[in-house]
Amino acid sequence: MRGIAAGAVAALAAAGLPVFAAPEAQAAACANPSGTYTGAVSWGQRLIDPPKLWPLSRGDGQTVAVIGTGVDKQNAQFGPGQLLGGAGTADSDCDGRGTIAAGIVGAQPQNETTFTGVAPGVKLLPLRYTESNGSAADGGGDPGALAGAITTAVDRGAGVLLIAVPAGSDSPALSAAVDHAHSRGAVVISAAAATQQGAHTYPTASAGVLAVGSTDEAGAPVQTEAGDYLGISAPGANLVSTSAGGGGAVAHRWPVTDPGLAAAYVAGVAALVRSAHPELTGDQVVNRLTLTASRPPSGAHDPKRGWGMVNAYAAVSSTLPANAPGPSAAPARSALPVVVPAAAETRSTSDATAGMVAVGGVVVAAAAGIGVAAFRRGKRRGWKPSRFKA
Rank of each mutant, 00 (worst) to 15 (best):
residue 2 R to Y: 11
residue 5 A to L: 13
residue 12 L to S: 09
residue 13 A to S: 13
residue 18 P to V: 04
residue 19 V to N: 02
residue 23 P to Q: 09
residue 25 A to H: 12
residue 33 P to D: 10
residue 38 T to N: 10
residue 46 R to V: 00
residue 51 P to Y: 03
residue 58 R to L: 06
residue 79 G to I: 02
residue 81 G to P: 07
residue 88 G to Q: 01
residue 97 R to D: 09
residue 102 A to H: 05
residue 107 A to L: 01
residue 113 T to S: 15
residue 115 F to A: 06
residue 121 G to I: 00
residue 123 K to G: 07
residue 123 K to A: 14
residue 124 L to E: 05
residue 128 R to D: 05
residue 129 Y to K: 06
residue 130 T to R: 07
residue 130 T to M: 06
residue 133 N to V: 10
residue 134 G to R: 01
residue 143 P to F: 01
residue 169 S to P: 03
residue 174 L to H: 05
residue 179 D to N: 13
residue 180 H to R: 13
residue 185 G to C: 07
residue 185 G to A: 07
residue 194 A to R: 02
residue 195 T to Q: 15
residue 199 A to R: 14
residue 200 H to I: 11
residue 201 T to F: 04
residue 205 A to L: 03
residue 210 L to R: 00
residue 210 L to E: 01
residue 216 D to C: 06
residue 223 Q to E: 13
residue 227 G to F: 02
residue 231 G to F: 04
residue 237 A to P: 00
residue 253 R to T: 14
residue 255 P to S: 10
residue 262 A to N: 00
residue 264 A to M: 05
residue 269 V to Y: 11
residue 272 L to T: 02
residue 278 P to L: 06
residue 281 T to F: 05
residue 290 T to A: 14
residue 302 D to Q: 02
residue 304 K to G: 11
residue 314 A to C: 04
residue 316 V to P: 01
residue 320 L to S: 08
residue 324 A to G: 09
residue 325 P to Y: 03
residue 329 A to W: 07
residue 338 V to G: 09
residue 351 D to W: 05
residue 355 G to C: 05
residue 363 V to I: 10
residue 369 G to V: 01
residue 371 G to S: 12
residue 378 G to W: 10
residue 386 S to L: 14
